[in-house]
Design a protein around this nucleic acid. Structure first.
Lengths: 331, 331
DNA sequence: TTGTATGCGTTATCAC
DNA sequence: GTGATAACGCATACAA
């Protein structure tokens, strides 16, 4: 049998109401009551049951961060940003992983529907836009590191199109003419945006778009390996490779090194995300840095604002990115 | 105002009890009731409030995995193992990060005390053994990837002492005489165990223990960099470096490469954890593989068993590790 | 098969 | 300043 507020009340010889008041630091209690209750709490080893409290208050002070998996190291900073923002307002952050299964993502959102959390941040939504927008009308949902193709739900992200453009344009500026792209089969908006930036830069420079130089895979280093292997088998090899994630780039560079390619000279590489390992790899990888911490902090703040307000902010916010130049582009 | 089971009952013209029965797939309901209730649920867009359900049932079917941060990529497999085991039994896994703050770890355990979750797995406990054992008498707690110096709480780990011994002995077998160790200042039992294995192997081979060859830092690649820098400044440099984590090793190898050292010949490297990047680094890193997925699966299974049983399993279980040999040891 | 009534542990609203 | 007591949303024992 668990110890409840009733037991404490009995032990302290006061009513449950008084115990509750003491526990919640209300000001309309006598010092004596505070003392006697605290002593009873201590003696009984009581800790309040939040299920009762949450039920009564209809809030949990918890928000859920839904990520694909913890393998993507850059989530770490995003989550740190969320936690910092949340703890400031008395919220806790819980994390759950979808493993890229839209169905499981929906299952996790069940925690939101069933009020086990007050809100949810989708950091790699696999559900379709329509479903998400539908849900966000009823529940407190925000999207981080990503945006929807259509408007209608709070998003905090970067301008991925511009980022893809910047990276590609930089390679063009280095005199590169055959710039390959490694992207994902999954049509996440961020991937599509980065691709579009790549296309725009090529077009602007009057360079042709060569389908042989575009590879569709997943976010793993294996994809990088396979893509690079294919590229190097071409009669006309690429002189630069832009990948939409650092992990892919690292796989691709691995392959290039094995083929005796001199990275930063024969072929330039640019990745995306600026993960910790990107600067530990030899040679160091040039990449696009997105402000992970800031995006996490911002999306959490805006979500909490939505939670405690009637009017809902459904805007899309784009934070600034930065091109980081290292050895893999000869810098 | 939220839609509750009452609203559904009213709309379906049945009692709340019947609605509840339908929702929980009880068999003692007529097909007609099922139909009418489901239609009402659909129409109203009702989804049950778990706070009520959980409170009533005194269980949440959720367990909490407490990790230091999501930056440690090997947690991914551990969590996958936990999730697979849990979903099989209808449990959800929530993740929360301590950021290496024992106080915050205690705060997170508050979710357990307050019954927001049914159990918790500590994957990098920073709290002292006494506190943990104390708590585990009252709450369902298990420890994964780690053990306590004393007995008293369910642990699933590997034999870290043996693993440290195996790694060091392998280096000795390669003819190495000056084997350095990079470990952590934090006295986690796993670190201490790995160190002790290192000492035992040296002693057994009649090699002296040289304090200049032992560096205490944290789990980051920066620690590896700094340690290696110091080692290379010694008059008598090491001919092998064993680190208690791959991330450290990668930092150390980075430093070695910068100094023109030939890895796998001048100096051999062995890491720990077999993270994905260890085989992507050039040269590929030899390491100790610990069965992350299996440890996660096992600890979750045993914790759930404890949750649904009177008698508590407080044993320590050690799963087998493997030495993975790659280029950094000249293999 | 169904409905009524009770209680899970807490907070909030009263009256005192 | 304090104590009864009524909610919160749900599941279930019991009665019908």
């Amino acid at each position: 049998m668990n110890i409840t507020i009733k037991d404490v009340a009995k032990a302290a010889n006061v009513s449950v109401a008084t115990v509750s008041r003491v526990l919640n630091n209300k000001n309309n209690v006598s010092q004596e009551a505070v003392n006697v209750v605290n002593r009873a709490v201590e003696e009984l080893g009581y800790s309040p049951n939040f299920l009762g409290r949450d039920l009564r208050k209809s809030e949990t002070k918890r928000i859920l961060a839904i990520i694909s998996s913890t393998e993507q190291t850059f989530y770490n900073d995003v989550l740190r940003g969320m936690q910092d923002a949340c703890s400031k307002k008395g919220y806790d952050v819980l994390i759950a992983t979808t493993r890229n299964d839209p169905e499981h993502e929906l299952h996790l959102l069940g925690m939101l529907f069933s009020r086990a959390v007050d809100g949810a941040v989708l950091l790699a939504p696999k559900l379709d836009s329509k479903t998400i927008i539908e849900l966000s009308r009823k529940y407190k949902i925000a999207i981080g590191l990503e945006r929807l193709s259509t408007d209608g739900v709070l998003c905090v992200t970067i301008d991925n199109e511009k980022a893809g453009y910047d990276a590609t344009k930089y390679l063009i500026g280095k005199g590169r003419k055959r710039i390959a792209l490694i992207t994902t089969e999954v049509r996440s908006q961020s991937s599509v945006d980065r691709e579009n930036g790549y296309y725009r830069a090529l077009k602007e420079a009057g360079l042709p778009i060569d389908e042989n130089l575009i590879y569709f895979g997943d976010y793993t280093s294996d994809t990088g390996l396979r893509a690079c292997e294919l590229f190097l088998a071409l009669r006309e090899k690429p002189d630069a490779i832009f990948s939409i994630s650092d992990t892919i780039s690292i796989g691709a560079m691995n392959c290039a090194v094995q083929h005796g390619i001199t990275i930063g000279k024969d072929i330039l590489f640019i990745g995306f995300d600026n993960i910790a390992y990107s600067s530990m790899f030899i040679p160091k990888l040039s990449t696009v840095d997105q402000p992970c911490y800031l995006q996490g902090k911002t999306v959490a703040e805006k979500l909490m604002a939505n939670i405690s307000s009637e009017e809902q902010d459904t805007g899309t916010y784009m934070l600034p990115h930065t091109l980081i130049l290292r050895e893999s582009t000869g810098d």
